[in-house]
Structures are given as structure tokens and as C-alpha cells.
């Protein structure tokens, strides 16, 4: 890929599209799901054409998300395997949060926080999809008992709240760590960003050039 000097390619066009499809689904799911979770947020159903349409479309957003996230998973899983340094990085999280990464181990393509977001999303999406199917009454009402649906309903809402929390962390981290957003919009990051946050990855990428 051609790119400005002093920058590194971080995400391919396909990966970025994949990411934003997933992101759009997750946001639409959160809005439509919250609308049905808390009465004070029911007004959000207006975004989707009213309550019945919100109820009808929510699981379809979820189905697209599952496929889209599965592709992301396949793309990124090998970079997200937990390593010994990740544990040491987590121990040094305080200095990282204080914008001082020199006291934490050097980071490869992803740091431990990013890996936790990755695995958190993976597990929660699986829980959400499985429990979502159980309460997708339009098509699958007869497949499970009401007792099972009650469990699924609670699990679904707990997992949804958890994933929105993970999402807040994900978005905040991207905004807080300057220079991160272009990785997902234009696909490139600066050499300085890579040196500061993903030094091992920078060296490896440089070698591969």
C-alpha cells in the first residue's frame, strides 16, 4: 500500500470496512436494545420507526453483527493471544493510565487492554447471540420453555450492559490515545505513535518492509 512517509499501515481497507460495519451494528443494537430495556429510553424506538419495528429489527442487527464480528475475529485473533508480557503490562496499568508507558513492557500489535476488549467483545457477543435466539419469539417461540426464556432474558440484558461498558472503554481509549483513530479511518498510524504505544510491532513491521 502506498502511504505517506513516516507512517505505517495498520489496517487494510477490508479490515476497516469490517470494523465499521460491526461498529454500526453494535451502536444500532445498543440504541434499539436500550429503548426496550428502560422506559425512560423508550423514545429511542422513534429512531427505528416505532416500538414494533424496533422489536422486529433488533435481532437482525444482531445477526449481521455476528457475521461481521466473526470475520473480525478471524482477522485479529492471532494477534490477541495472551502472552506473559500482557500480564506484566496489566500490572503496570497505573503508569499507562498516567500516560507513562516507559514503565510498562514493550507492546506488540495489541496491548493487554486491547486484548481484553477483544476477548470481552467475543464472549459477550456469543452470550448475546445465543440468549437472543432464545428470546427471538417471532421465529423461535416454540423452541424453548418460558423458564429458559427468563434466564436468557436476564443473561441478554446483563451481557448487553456489559458490552456497552466495554464499548465505552474501547471508544474512550481510542480518543484518549491520540493518533489512534486514523488507524481505523485511513488505515495508517504515525511512526511516533507506533514507537510510543506498540514498539515491538513497530520493529517487526520495519523489518518486514
Amino acid at each position: 500500500m502506498r502511504q505517506p512517509p513516516g507512517t505505517l499501515a495498520r489496517y487494510t481497507t477490508a479490515a476497516r470496512i469490517n470494523h465499521w460495519v460491526t461498529a454500526a451494528c453494535l451502536i444500532l443494537l445498543a440504541l434499539s436494545g436500550m429503548a426496550l430495556f428502560h422506559p425512560s429510553l423508550f423514545f429511542l424506538t422513534a429512531l427505528f420507526g416505532g416500538g414494533a419495528d424496533t422489536r422486529a429489527i433488533h435481532p437482525w442487527f444482531g445477526s449481521v453483527l455476528l457475521v461481521s464480528f466473526a470475520l473480525l475475529f478471524v482477522r485479529f485473533v492471532r494477534h490477541n493471544l495472551w502472552e506473559r508480557d500482557d500480564t506484566r503490562w496489566m500490572v503496570a496499568i497505573r503508569s499507562v493510565l498516567a500516560n507513562d508507558e516507559e514503565h510498562a513492557p514493550e507492546v506488540g500489535r495489541y496491548n493487554a487492554g486491547q486484548k481484553l476488549v477483544f476477548w470481552g467483545m467475543t464472549v459477550l457477543i456469543l452470550v448475546l447471540f445465543a440468549s437472543g435466539l432464545v428470546i427471538w419469539d417471532t421465529y423461535f417461540f416454540g423452541a424453548t420453555t418460558i423458564a429458559q426464556k427468563r434466564i436468557a432474558q436476564l443473561a441478554h440484558s446483563l451481557a448487553a450492559v456489559a458490552i456497552i461498558g466495554v464499548w465505552i472503554v474501547h471508544v474512550y481509549a481510542a480518543l484518549w490515545v491520540r493518533g489512534t483513530v486514523p488507524a481505523m479511518t485511513r488505515g495508517v498510524v504515525s511512526a511516533g505513535w507506533s514507537w510510543r504505544h506498540h514498539r515491538k510491532w513497530l520493529r517487526e513491521s520495519a523489518q518486514r518492509r
Partner: peptide
């Protein structure tokens, strides 16, 4: 804590690695 900015030194060192 404020934003985590990339400093000019980072940029210099990063480019160093790339150029090498």
C-alpha cells in the same frame, strides 16, 4: 491525565527505527 499525545521525540525515534 489528559490525552496521551505522541511527542516529537517519539516521532523522531519511530522514524529512526523505520529508516534504519
Amino acid at each position: 491525565a489528559g490525552p496521551n499525545e505522541v511527542h516529537p521525540e517519539d516521532e523522531a525515534k519511530g522514524r529512526d527505527v523505520l529508516d534504519r
